[in-house]
Design a protein around this nucleic acid. Structure first.
Lengths: 240, 240
DNA sequence: CAACAAGTTGACATTAGTGTCAAAAATCTA
DNA sequence: TAGATTTTTGACACTAATGTCAACTTGTTG
């Protein structure tokens, strides 16, 4: 019987009578998922082929079908894993902290996510670009709730005079889009910067700039944000 | 003989002995291009099918091949048109203007582009997400030049003390990503806002918020930017 | 090591995709 | 309206995709 094959999260043994997956299954599912991440990120759901996934995973094609019921279920498993990752990483925006501290940390986490999970980010982006036909329920439930929770946090900060009365929803979109951009538009960014790939330097400079502009842009002052006024984080940027 | 089929731009008659395209050709190429915009935006290059394009254009499939040599050439024609549109709309960032005025106008134009050309924007985004294999030359030439021109403008503003010394490249990415987002992530934005589609209200609110945050974020003051200080553009945003 | 479970593999069925062609039909032009 | 040109269309060749299967091999466990 084919297992549901959530290699990353469901590795707890003896969960409901299902035996823990053996080492071969574990290894192969992992190989397939890694290959699939590449292929789906590269070609999107419609354009991806199981053939290519098998090639990347260095397994014969029927083997992929042995572990995953169909292309769709493989894709949905991956999407599910991505949403879980997301939740784990980006769930806490604490209204009790100051916006300076909370947003600074949030942006840093989101940028780190773009860096370490760029394939996942791209898959998600492609899905949304396509109208998110395989994320309908997520957008109707989980996302809606999460988003409204975030809005309430922003509102509470605004009410307490900790930031400018900027439209919270659009502020969230600004944070989202800028941080997401460094994963999704990597190719364009590299072309602009004239580098082959984004390294530590570029990422920390990006993170600093984004943080600086957004925090200042919503009226969070230097002392609140942990910057000292006489020593701005950003030098001229005109250096090179 | 098959023409190169640039329905939008090459409609000048008697250009090099080639006759002006007849009305049937003109109409059909337009139908095909509009259908292809949808299909490519929805599925990406790899996932799109000529079959579906033909169905959307309400033409028999061989007809599509009659007007366009291949799927690739159709796609490349469309990509080319998009780049041309881009150039026409977003080319002028004048260093002689103040950053307040120039950036405000630029953001407004870019947001309008996201609104009126969301399919084109999505196609471009998908191409970049895929690593832009069919935009290599563009990124190596046209884009590079344009980007460096923009950087020089920012530098000149910074040198003259008209804005904070924010890294110009990353500032440009911020402007790009936020404005682009309203086309590419439309589905997610609608889910967050709880609306079916983005209307005038949402777009102008988005435009205002993005402009406000970015201008303030780079230290462009209210008087420079055309805002009066006592009457902020953004009300609480807590209204609804 | 024997028996059972798990994994591998080549072959096959089916469907869908791109691109080609020649002949028929429609349209244009003199 | 006759002849030339453009457009339409059904049929075909070819490739590649997904998914299935049964036979075979390998691993696991008492």
């Amino acid at each position: 019987m084919k297992a549901r094959a959530r290699a990353k999260l469901t590795d707890l043994p003896s969960h409901r009578g299902e035996k823990a997956p053996g080492r071969i299954r574990q290894r192969n599912e992992q190989l397939i998922i890694e290959a699939a991440l590449q292929e789906f990120a590269h070609k999107g759901y419609e354009g991806a082929s199981i053939n290519e996934i098998a090639r990347l995973a260095k397994l014969p094609r029927p083997n992929v079908h042995y572990y995953f019921e169909s292309k769709l279920s493989l894709y949905q498993d991956i999407l599910g894993d991505i949403l879980d990752l997301w939740d784990d990483t980006l769930n806490d925006l604490d209204p009790e902290q100051t916006p300076a501290i909370a947003l600074r940390a949030y942006i840093a986490r989101k940028m780190a996510f773009s860096r370490t999970h760029s394939l996942e980010s791209k898959i998600f982006a492609k899905e949304v670009l396509s109208g998110a036909p395989r994320l309908k329920t997520y957008f109707e439930r989980g996302y809606r709730n999460w988003f409204e929770r975030v809005l309430r946090v922003f509102h509470s900060w605004i009410d307490r005079g900790l930031m400018d009365p900027v439209d919270p929803a659009h502020l969230m979109f600004i944070i989202w889009s800028t941080t997401q951009h460094y994963a999704d538009f990597e190719t364009q960014i590299c072309a602009g910067l004239g580098v082959e790939e984004l390294g530590d330097r570029e990422f920390s400079r990006a993170s600093e700039t984004v943080t600086y502009v957004i925090l200042k842009g919503i009226g969070v002052t230097a002392e609140d944000s942990g910057f000292s006024e006489s020593d701005p984080v950003l030098k001229a940027g005109a250096a090179d």
